[in-house]
Computed example of a mutant assay.
Amino acid sequence: MSTKKISDFDSKEIIFYAERIATNMTEMSWNDSVKIVLSVCCDSPTLFPEIKSWSSNEDYITKWLKKYFGGYNNRPSKRISKKIGTVSDEIIDTILSVRLPTLSTDGINHIKDAHRLSMSAENILGLLLEEYIAENLSFYGWYCAWGATTNKVDFCTKKGDLLQVKNRSNSENSSSSSVRKGTPIRKWHRVNAKNGVYYWKELN
């Protein structure tokens, strides 16, 4: 099975196959948004994500579409988050009781539960931000690459403008930052992690 990218194939052929595949699958709906994101990838093949174990161009396109619509159909507003499945470390109780000796066992449990809930919320915040921006920017011709269907790019336009979105200034790893070097990919983050300043004006 090949792990190469689909850049060897003609862009018109890719769009043709994609529309045909999406039209014949109930969980997919061919529209301008998916067409533009796919077309931008065709124009800049390095944006195509690596998809392992595909055997033909049609197979790759099918898996790419499943990634896109999987991301869209399971966006935060359309799914129910799972309950936290891990167990808290008992040593946390000891540390909290030393720091806050007047706190009751119930109080310690409330702190731990609130902390775990806060961490869970932070984990989905980036996805919520992405959905919020997608809802508000589509009118201006910016489309979300749902399901990580473009390499390190979250939004694009028909003209090929590329945008990478982060929730906080410290939420980017080295691989995300290195991919922009020598490319037209722009980056925006919602809030400065050090001082709490928001950057909505810059996004506008």
Rank of each mutant, 00 (worst) to 15 (best):
M1Q: 05
G196M: 05
L103V: 15
E172S: 12
W188T: 01
S174C: 05
S104E: 04
K35E: 09
T62D: 10
S7L: 02
I51Q: 01
S171T: 14
I124Y: 05
V153N: 07
P184T: 11
D106I: 13
D154E: 06
N73P: 00
F9M: 08
R168Y: 14
T62A: 09
K78T: 09
E135P: 01
N109L: 02
R168D: 03
S104I: 04
G71I: 12
R99G: 00
I21W: 06
Y72P: 01
E50A: 14
P76V: 07
A121N: 12
A18D: 03
Y60A: 05
Y132S: 14
K12L: 06
S55A: 07
P101Q: 06
R180M: 15
N167W: 11
R99D: 04
P49M: 12
W188Q: 03
W188G: 06
K66H: 09
E58L: 07
I92D: 02
K35R: 13
R20G: 12
V87Y: 12
A22R: 05
T86E: 04
N151F: 13
D93I: 01
I185N: 03
L100H: 14
R75Y: 02
N24A: 15
R99T: 08
I92S: 08
S178Y: 15
S118V: 11
S120F: 04
R20L: 08
G71V: 14
E13W: 15
S120C: 02
V165M: 07
K82V: 00
L129D: 01
I80W: 06
R99H: 10
I133K: 04
N151W: 08
N170K: 08
W200V: 14
R116Y: 10
S11I: 00
G107R: 04
H189T: 07
C41E: 06
G126K: 03
F16I: 02
A22I: 05
W200R: 08
W188N: 03
A148V: 01
G71W: 11
L47V: 13
V40T: 12
S44P: 00
V179R: 11
A134F: 06
E202K: 15
G126W: 02
T94I: 13
C41Y: 02
G70P: 13
S97M: 10
E131N: 06
N136H: 14
D106L: 09
K78A: 08
K83N: 11
T183A: 14
E19F: 12
T94A: 14
R75D: 02
A121T: 09
K66L: 14
I92A: 07
T86F: 15
R168N: 14
L96P: 00
L100T: 09
R75W: 03
C41S: 15
W188I: 02
Y140L: 13
I133S: 07
V40Q: 00
L203W: 04
I91H: 02
N167S: 15
K158N: 11
T150W: 01
K35Y: 01
T3C: 00
M119Y: 08
P101W: 07
L38A: 02
E13P: 00
R180N: 11
I95K: 09
A22F: 08
Y132E: 15
G71Y: 11
I91P: 00
W142E: 03
S169Q: 03
